[in-house]
């Protein structure tokens, strides 16, 4: 069991980061405010998680002006998609082992 835990990606070591990735993998581009509402986070909190994911190159940022308002949207990168999938595979393995441990 210890082996699997060490394999879990530290970049996803927080439920809000997992939440951000979950939203981005099923949508093309998501606005900052939509993320904030869906995750129910404060600006500072959300921004720090986004920054962390961005510096791991798991998400990309797109800034544009809609009328006079700046709008920031986020999308997942291929690297992020792969890392997220690997993370889910590891979680699945951990849970499978845990269940087998319970059964026996």
């Amino acid at each position: 069991m210890k082996d699997f835990i060490t394999q879990l990606n530290p970049a996803f070591d927080h439920r809000n980061r997992l939440g951000i990735m979950s939203i981005l993998v099923v949508n093309d581009w998501v606005e900052y405010n939509t993320l904030k509402e869906l995750l129910n986070l404060t600006d500072g909190n959300l921004a720090s998680h986004l920054k962390a994911l961005e510096s791991s190159e798991y998400i990309r940022v797109h800034k544009q002006f809609v009328g006079r308002k700046p709008q920031t949207t986020y999308g997942v990168t291929d690297k992020g998609k792969e890392a997220f999938k690997a993370h889910l595979d590891t979680l699945e393995a951990i849970l499978t082992i845990a269940r087998e441990g319970e059964d026996s």
């Binding site: 439920r15 997992l18 939440g19 979950s22 939203i23 993998v25 099923v26 949508n27 998501v30 939509t34 869906l38 995750l39 979680l91």
Partner: peptide, 14 residues
């Protein structure tokens, strides 16, 4: 718990 939450977020956002 995390998995359930992620699933809900995927549903709700798309």
């Amino acid at each position: 718990e995390h998995l359930a939450e992620m699933r809900a977020l995927m549903e709700r956002s798309s």
